[in-house]
Design a protein around this nucleic acid. Sequence first.
RNA 1: GGCUCCGUCGUCUAGUGGCCUAGGACUCUGGCUUCUCAAGCCAGCUACGAGGGUUCGAAUCCCUUCGGAGCUACCA
Length: 487
Amino acid sequence: MANNSQVRVRFAPSPTGDLHVGNIRTALFDWAYARHTQGKLIFRIEDTDRDRVTDEYIQAAIDTLKWLGLNWDEGPEVGGAYGPYLQSQRLEIYAEWAQKFLDNGDAYHCYCSADELEERRQLQMKNNQAPGYDGKCRDLSNVQIEDYKSKGRKPVVRMRMPQGETVFTDAIRGEVKFEHLYVPDFVLARADGSPLYTLAVAVDDILMKITHVLRGEDLLSSTPRQIRVYQAMGVAESDYPIFAHLPFVMGQDNAKLSKRNGEVSIAWYREKGFLPDAICNYLALLGWSPGDDKENITMQELVDLFTVERVNSSPARFDMKKLEAINGDKIRALSLPDFLDWALPFLMKANVISGSDDEIALVKKALPIIQERIVTLGEIPAMLNFLFVKNFAVDPEEQPKLVEAAAQEVLKVALTKVESLEKWDHTSIEEVLRKALIEELGLKPRIAFSALRIAVTGSHISPPLFESMELLGRDGSISRIKSAISA
RNA sequence: GGCUCCGUCGUCUAGUGGCCUAGGACUCUGGCUUCUCAAGCCAGCUACGAGGGUUCGAAUCCCUUCGGAGCUACCA
């Protein structure tokens, strides 16, 4: 196996859509392994299928990795000695190798049409045979070739699989063996000369001197094809990369993660208000574990602890609840300046604030009292809206609770006490209200403060009442209590 | 169908022959705390897919079986 001293891992997505949870978990492991070994992370775009990969998706993939903090050493935007890193810019390279394979007899031209192949496949299935290319064009005579050409047929390049078997050691699963009987000759390049995944991935991994291939389990059965290409390239077995096939991340119902059973696009989590560190922390726990009972880890701890040996081989189910729990932990651990930086864009986007200095100052004061009450940043606007809203109105569903006689009594007493307060801070407010409502009127705290809470914040669920009143200010609080009384 | 991978609480996992009457986390349930909601604290529920071996001893090793997943493309 590869014995280079410098570890070179690659993350090579085919951006046919927004990067999803599974992609990111792979990227995260690739990144963590590169950093753990102080090796290099190579970011390569597999866009050989330009019908499905768009520039927008490529850019989105780049942005997503950056947002998550998964930086790369070679690839788009940073370049590197083995570029270009977009496969669509490496077409001549693949064409050269395809030609070389043809010249050496490792590959051959196949003139079968898609329809013919499909027809034969159906027949194979019907006869209970393993479907796959039957080798029809393996040894075409010159006459046959001329005949095809005269009919205007354009050939694809197909790799010749020799008899035998391919055995390799997967770093996660151990020895895996494939009999070539079940690995049919596969297509390397289309009739127009454009390469297919099997050609490009193998050529690039060798040319880019990749030492470790950590990728999804779905690619496990394509590994013998890649190894076949290495052989045709004349690569020594000791220079093959080490393969490590990561277990799947699945949805709730044991199916591959999809829109149906949970949001898959990382962009969605970003908008919802999940922190990159929380996403990475959670994803790291899918198929890997730090080994001890500690699960809430930092990116640095992940780097320090991550080894392929500790990666599981069994698939994991994605659990939104646990992600939320971790996100809540991460939010609570945020410093106030960091929390402010994360919170502001959400408040602006929801039009709760416009971004003035006064508003920001107030947000800064309010954040500590909601920090342990939210699970995602997206909940912040609703939590703080009562401080900024111009036309305040009590939630219609809460309104009935205010008109009750007992509530009116509380509000009236509270109003007079609060109006005569000299210092407007939460301790003074709490002190005077407790004295008047709890001690003197003998009310239970939860009863006494409920009406006030609704009057001031508009809902029976809110940040702590006295702090909320302090932040709202004397005038605002008093006028809201007044309007609750007259209502 | 064939090939390949996988199988510990509901979920993520710890566990590599005795430390396991199986540990942690999330969820759920009950309680404490409490100005609401949270947070925090305490307690509880629940698992080695099944069946055979090997062994003094098995979640850990072997076999069979059942289940799940992936691949089986001129997608990646």
